Amino acid sequence: MQTHALEGGFTDAPIDAACAFRGLMTAMARPGTICDVSGATPPAPLGAAAGTAILTLCDPDTPIYLGTACDTQDV
């Protein structure tokens, strides 16, 4: 197992994941509403919000498309 793949997660996983999930669901349910979704420290070039969204909503079985700039080994 590569340990660098486990870096960048939530500090307090249950609380941070719940807050991020609530913020993401609110933002999707109310377009134009600005919600704070943070807590993850993703590898570059992802920002904190993108990394938090991926960490919150995706699992190993969830296929996602990464554009060429974000399609790196670390991500």
Rank of each mutant, 00 (worst) to 15 (best):
M1A: 15
M1I: 13
Q2T: 11
Q2C: 13
Q2D: 12
Q2N: 15
T3M: 09
T3A: 14
H4R: 15
H4L: 14
A5F: 15
L6M: 14
G8L: 06
G9Y: 04
G9W: 03
G9Q: 01
F10D: 08
T11I: 15
T11N: 14
D12L: 09
D12T: 13
P14M: 11
P14A: 05
P14K: 03
D16C: 08
D16A: 11
D16M: 10
D16P: 14
A17R: 13
A17L: 15
A17I: 11
A18P: 04
A18G: 05
R22D: 07
G23I: 03
G23M: 01
G23R: 02
L24W: 08
M25C: 06
M25Y: 03
M25P: 01
M25A: 12
M25L: 11
M25S: 08
A27L: 12
A27F: 07
A27G: 11
A27R: 13
M28I: 08
M28C: 08
M28S: 10
G32N: 02
G32E: 05
G32H: 05
T33A: 11
T33H: 14
T33L: 14
T33Q: 15
I34D: 09
C35A: 12
S38R: 12
G39L: 07
G39W: 00
A40L: 01
A40Q: 02
A40W: 01
P42T: 02
P42H: 01
P42L: 03
P42E: 01
P43N: 03
P43I: 04
A44M: 05
A44N: 03
A44E: 12
P45Q: 10
P45N: 07
P45S: 08
P45I: 03
G47R: 01
G47W: 02
A48F: 00
A48Y: 01
A48C: 12
A49W: 04
A49E: 03
A49F: 12
A49M: 08
A50M: 02
A50H: 00
G51Y: 02
G51R: 00
T52L: 08
T52Q: 07
L55C: 09
L55E: 07
L55S: 06
L57E: 13
C58W: 00
C58A: 14
D59Y: 05
D59L: 04
P60H: 11
D61V: 11
D61P: 02
T62K: 01
T62L: 00
P63D: 09
I64L: 02
I64Y: 01
Y65C: 05
Y65A: 00
L66C: 09
L66H: 02
T68M: 13
T68P: 06
A69K: 09
T72I: 07
D74H: 14
D74E: 14
D74V: 13
V75Y: 00
V75L: 02
